[in-house]
Every structure is written in C-alpha cells, then in structure tokens.
Write a protein that binds this DNA or RNA. Sequence first.
DNA 1: ATGAAAGCGCTAACAG
DNA 2: CTGTTAGCGCTTTCAT
Lengths: 342, 342
Amino acid sequence: MDMRDIAKIAGVSSATVSRVINGSSLVRPETAERVQRVIEKTNFVPNGSATTLKYGRSSTFGLIIPDITNPFFPELIRCFEAILVSNDQDMLMATTDFQPAKLQRTIRRMLIRKVDAVALLAAEIETQPIESLMHNRVPLVTLDRRSIARGVSDVAVEYLSGMKQAVEHLKRLGHRRIGYIGGSLGLTISEHRVEGFRTAIEEAGLKYDPKFVLPGNYRISGGEAGMREILAMKTRPTAILATNDLTAIGAMRVARVQGVGIPEEISIIGFDDIELCEIVYPALTTLRLPRQELAQALFRALDVLAKHPHGRGHQSMVSTTLVIRDSTGPAPRDRKPAGKSV
Amino acid sequence: MDMRDIAKIAGVSSATVSRVINGSSLVRPETAERVQRVIEKTNFVPNGSATTLKYGRSSTFGLIIPDITNPFFPELIRCFEAILVSNDQDMLMATTDFQPAKLQRTIRRMLIRKVDAVALLAAEIETQPIESLMHNRVPLVTLDRRSIARGVSDVAVEYLSGMKQAVEHLKRLGHRRIGYIGGSLGLTISEHRVEGFRTAIEEAGLKYDPKFVLPGNYRISGGEAGMREILAMKTRPTAILATNDLTAIGAMRVARVQGVGIPEEISIIGFDDIELCEIVYPALTTLRLPRQELAQALFRALDVLAKHPHGRGHQSMVSTTLVIRDSTGPAPRDRKPAGKSV
DNA sequence: ATGAAAGCGCTAACAG
DNA sequence: CTGTTAGCGCTTTCAT
C-alpha cells in the first residue's frame, strides 16, 4: 500500500496524496478531504525510508550513553526523548558500556541510519569516532568534553562552583580532611573533575591530600572499593565527595556494613541527584545536575548545529546546586589527636 | 558519496561495490580488495535508507516501555539491546508514560520507520494499537498479556508459582494476614496479578481479605500511598506483597518514616529484583524476574514471528523465584488480641 | 489546483 | 566474474 494506491482510490495523483499528507495549502479542500478519508479508511502509513532516502535526513537523533543502569541516564533519556517527540524526531539509543569498540560500531550504525544528529554522552570519548561524525557532517554534541569544533558543540557541567559549595558546606561543619572517590582512571572527564575537586579544596584554604583521592568506576562497586580503602587508613578523611551518586551510595553501603556511622563518623556527598538519593538511608546530600535543563541544552545545541551545518559549535554550561540531606553532618573529633589538619 | 562514486574510483560498477560490501562470494578477490581499499580511504558508509526502501525492512526493532525510570526497564533494555546488536539490529526505543495516546503515536512512528518487529512492554495495552501493528504485518511480542494471535506472541511472567512461594515463605514465618499493593486500576495486567495473589493466598489455606488489597501505580508513590492506608487500619496485615519492587520500596519508606519496624512489625516482599533491592535498608525480599531470560524470550519470539510472517504467535513463560533478604521476618504477635486471623 | 516524471542510493535479476 | 538496469516510495519541479 503506497501513495499511488491511495491516489488511485481517491481518483487523484500520488503527488496530491503527498501534498495532503504534508499539509500543503495548494490542494482544494474537497480533494484533500476525499484523500484524507481514503487514508483513514485504509489505515495508510507512509513509508519513511523513501523520505529519508530523498532528503538524506531521517528525523532521528542518536543518543549514546555509557551505562543505562546508572539511574541518572534513564532520567535524562526520558527528558531527551520527550523533547525529541515534541519535535517530531525519533531516538536511536545505544549503550557503550564504556567500551570504545562498541562506541565505534554504534556510530557507524548511526551513520548508516542517517541520523540527523548525535548526542554523545559516553565518557570514553576518543577523537576518532568524533571525526567520523564530523567527516559525515553530522551535528554532534558531547557532554563535558569542553572542546568544540565545526559542527561539534559541548554542554559542560559547571561542577566547579558546585564542588566549592560542597566543600564550603563541609568546612562549615568542621571538616578539614576531605577525600574524593572519582571516576575511572584514564578518562579525561575523570581527570577534569579531580582537578575541580583540588581547586575547590585549595580555594577553601584546605589541604589537598592525594592520599585521600581514589579512583572509582562511576558505579556502586567503585564507591565500595574506594570506601574500603579509605576505612583502612590510619588517618582517614572525615568527609568524602564522590564523582556521582552511585559511587557515593557504594561508599555508604560499605560504611554501613563496617559499622561506620554516616554522617556521625564520615560525611558523604554525591553528584547528580538521582531519585535514589532520597531513598537510601541516610538520604544522600548531593550536587544536583538538573536533567531537564541538560536535555534541553543538548537538544538546543544539536538543533542550532542542524540549522547551521557549517557553523562552529558552541560551548554551553549546566550548573549544579547543592542539595543538603542527611549524609552530611558535623565532623567528628579526631580519634587520634595526632592528625594535623589544615 | 555513494556506491557509484566508489565504483568510479575503483574502476568497477556500483553492483560490484554492493557485492563487496555485502560479502558476496562472486567477486574476484583482487577486485574486492581494490574496492575495499577505496571504501576505507574514503570512509564510505552506505545509506541504509535505500536498503530499507528496497526491502521494506529496516533492521530495527521497536521497544516500547511504560516508564524508563523504573530501574527494571533499563536493566531489561540493556539486555535487549545487546541481543539486538549482536543480531545486527538497531533499537528504536520509546516510552509511553502509561498514556495510551502516546502509545498510539509511538506505534505510528514505528510503522513509518518500518521497524521489523515490536516488543510492547507497556501495560496499558488496548487492542487498538495492536491491531494497527497486526494490520501492517509487524511481528509483535507483548509482556504478560496472555493472549496471542496471528503474528502476535506473548511472554508471560509466571508469577503464580512465585507468589505461592512468597506466601508460603510468609506463612512459615507465622503470617496469617497478608496484604497486597498492586498496580494501577483498570489495567488487565494489574487484575491478573491480583487474581494470582488471591489464588496463592487461598491455596495456602489463608483468608483472602479484599480490605488488605490496595491499588498502586507501579511507582514508589503508589507504594507509599498504599502503605499509609495500611498503617491506618485498626487491624493491619502483618505482611505485604507488592506488585513490583518500587511499590515495595515506597511502602518501606512510609513504614520507616512512621517508625514501623521492618520486618519486626511488617514484612514486605517485592517483585522484579532490581538492583535497588540490595541497596535499600533493609534489603528487600523479592520475587526475581530474570532480565536476561526475559529479553531472550522477547527476542526469540520476535525472531520466530519474523521468519514465519503468517504463523500464529506463541505463548512462552518466564518464571520467578523468591529471593529472601531482610525485609521479611517472623510475624509479630497481635498487638490487639482481637483480630481473628485464619 | 493537479498531474507527470525524475531522482534519492541500493540491490538483484538478467545479460554478457 | 562483472555490468546494466529497473524499481523500492516519496517529493518536487515543471507543465498544464
């Protein structure tokens, strides 16, 4: 069943059917109505691949994320999808599981599908896959890569001011030794954030101690491992910033298992503000990264690029705010009066 | 850049390029290699829409889910996507947020995109959208709808035996009054499950009391509301089965807030076994619904239908198993010696 | 206001 | 083994 069939039944040409479907104004109302009736009676649905072939555009945006089981992403996907649908776009979603090889193949599949644009939220960004998108003139927006180019925009998370808020909050509570459990080693994004942490610590007039800075993996297990190490230290930090909420939650679990009170003995601050933060016990203090704003920023960036295919990308920012809950509290007094802090 | 361009550079015809790309065996190795080199040098990526147009198939499966923020679904999506990728299929994902209107539009978009098959996991299944898929001969698999047709298979959750296990487990712990917080009213799936609960209760020789059966909404808020109602009862159940883990978690939260001990005063059992179950406190006893198996069953069903387009659908089952954690414990003794139980 | 027809890029049947 | 060509369904210019 194609437009010609509809045309035949309605006694018009396929061109007219096309015009009716696309709401062209140069069809006589009666004709349009007649065609419309046939379309409805036959349940006709046009074949999008013909349109895609003709235009080279598919009304589909690609969304690439590293790990869909991190609840931050579903919440983001939901916002992003809603925006796409209201703009008559479909979403082709793919997960990389942090594997560059998967990313490579994913991008290839998206090129084949002629996606109109790609939002690449995967942290393991090498430049190569990006180049293949640029080469094919597919607008691209990255998350927190802080680097733009022709056809490539970036939405960065303004974590620095958030981290400063977090550190200030802890300092006010009397904390002097603040640790950090970060992301996977070797990812630019992880390094940036450690730097942000260092800056925040130093600007607060505290001492940055690399001993207290541990890598993680953006998942619960990373937080658990980090916390185990921290709890084994002779002099341990009295508060910890985690690179995301899952990491923080992993850390809290280990603390609970080992009978270390939160926030009595260690305060913990997460990052993202996923729904889980209110559900875990104690509720997690965290830096909120607003999903809706982020999704909007991503879409807008792509939309702009799509309209100016030769334009240079733009850098935009999404800021974070501290949400204080119950996982942070006054610093404990040193158990060993030793530990000179500050 | 299309196959003809590649052909020109390599000094062959576009047909040969097509053959090389599709690994046809009737190209002389040297020719193939020459073409291959040109493809690589130019970073050529074929235009899938032409293939889709030609075949009427897009190598894309649709996946429709009600609520991506329910962690059960990301875990399922991840499994499903992995299976698709390893079968060279893409995934078009859409969320309905339990709104029939959204489902309708989603299905239309999928028809336009010429998806090869659809996995419809949204609970609010009316027959109408399904018919539009059947009408267009798109293989369809539903979840727990327990109804099949030409081109429509179903994967059901064998919750009855799981519920019996759950009820037996509670009975052994001394519980006699067992309540249930279900899904949204008016969905077939919700009603089926209530029936399953009733059967399980009665087969265990316990009394089914409709007072203790409350509706929810498959989300935390529904569990909270249900639990609030339950805690307000003069004689309350000593244990509760929830229709999914989120509901159970909502119920647990309300209990904690109101100072009702779990499992000391009320035992709670969830359904799904999302990762969260191990993270909440106390860890949630639940009926595990294995994602990997479910995703496999869904894919297999679609795969079979795709190969036998005129075949009748099949009914398959995924079973559940009880995972005992810390949210269930011995029944408390009646605070008011009144309440005649059993 | 409507129709005829070319062409988007790929594939497969057919010809050589 | 390789090339030629028709055609998948839609849009759009050009004619009428």
